[in-house]
């Protein structure tokens, strides 16, 4: 256990209990007289916190491995087209009206994610080259995006349209234990897969040829990436909609505190991602906003886009 991981775990140990107390209704741990406190705690706050931790960890780890895989600090798990694929599945569940029955939405989203993963796997081929594969992922992303827009524009009722648009903005409002049971096994499995890619990603630091000369199987790495990113991101979109920028930002926060190898970034990125999403979700909950709660996806994009610009400016200065 490195010092960085210990610090992040300590921060989580402090944040998790605080997040359970914060919200529209503040729970005072020393004054348990509040009616419904137990219900709010167990049925609203706790599953929401667990989801934030799971999705944040998945997105953080997926971001760290994506940046390692593409050897590019601007890479993001969205580049593979898995999140748009999952979102397309979810949109179709609204479109067909099946979203009303609890399990259909996440199921459709997972099918969409699996479809994108299968397409990636089929396109990847035997060679295992990174560039072609990434371009294929981007095309899958834009195809899914176009189909999503088509579904929205052809949506049967204005109500369905507004539901779709709101859902796409990503949030953890009103999520319960059922969502946790969907997301938890998939995300944890995805994290385990991503951790197995660590050594190969380290070798890839020296380029694809050198990585192969170090005994790395590029095809195996590609499959690990598809499975790991697909499971973590797909599960996240299925229960919470699209939450961007976590995977892009988090590895940058932790990288300076590691030896900068991709493998030493995976665990701290997962922990920091969990922390970021938990804190962001709490702030969304607490911020007094007239029209209801600030959507988590919007909040993170508001935070992430300026961060991305800052990153670009710094890169420009380094290149100049």
């Amino acid at each position: 256990m490195t010092r960085l991981n210990t610090l992040l775990l300590l921060a989580l140990a402090v944040t998790v209990p605080l997040s359970l107390l914060a919200g529209r209704v503040w729970i005072d741990p020393f004054d348990p007289a509040l009616p419904n406190a137990a219900v709010i705690f167990a049925e609203l706050r706790l599953p929401r916190a667990v989801l934030a931790l799971l999705l944040g960890a998945g997105l953080g780890a997926a971001g760290a491995t994506m940046q390692g895989y593409l050897r590019n600090p601007l890479a993001d798990p969205g580049l593979f087209g898995i999140a748009p694929g999952a979102a397309l599945g979810a949109v179709l569940s609204f479109w067909t009206g099946w979203a009303a029955s609890g399990w259909a939405l996440p199921l459709f989203a997972l099918i969409g994610a699996a479809g994108a993963m299968a397409l990636l796997g089929a396109i990847a081929g035997r060679g295992g080259g990174v560039l072609l594969f990434t371009l294929a992922g981007m095309m899958i992303a834009s195809l899914a995006g176009a189909l999503m827009s088509l579904a929205i524009s052809l949506s049967p009722t204005p109500f369905a349209m507004s539901e779709i648009v709101t859902w796409l903005m990503g949030a953890l409002v009103d999520r319960g234990w059922a969502d946790v049971w969907i997301a938890a096994p998939l995300t944890l499995l995805g994290l385990a897969v991503l951790l197995r890619a660590g050594r190969s990603l380290d070798a890839l630091t020296l380029g694809e040829v050198a990585a192969r000369s170090l005994g790395i199987d590029p095809r195996r790495l590609q499959l690990l990436m598809i499975a790991g990113v697909g499971l973590t991101v797909g599960a996240g979109v299925a229960v919470a909609g699209i939450i961007g920028f976590v995977g892009l930002m988090v590895p940058h926060f932790v990288r300076p505190f590691t030896d900068r190898r991709p493998s030493s970034l995976i665990v701290p990125s997962a922990l920091a991602g969990a922390l970021l999403l938990l804190v962001a979700d709490c702030l969304c909950r607490v911020l007094p906003l007239a029209g209801g709660e600030l959507r988590l996806g919007i909040a993170l994009s508001l935070l992430g886009a300026p961060f991305f610009l800052h990153l670009l400016l710094r890169l420009r200065r380094e290149l100049a």
């Binding site: 380029g207 192969r212 005994g215 190898r261």
Partner: peptide
């Protein structure tokens, strides 16, 4: 097997790339 081969043969490519 690839790891055995890699243990025996060290390869220095022309590219001096170090991504991180």
């Amino acid at each position: 097997p690839a790891p055995k081969r890699a243990q025996a043969i060290g390869f220095l490519p022309q590219s001096a790339e170090v991504a991180w």
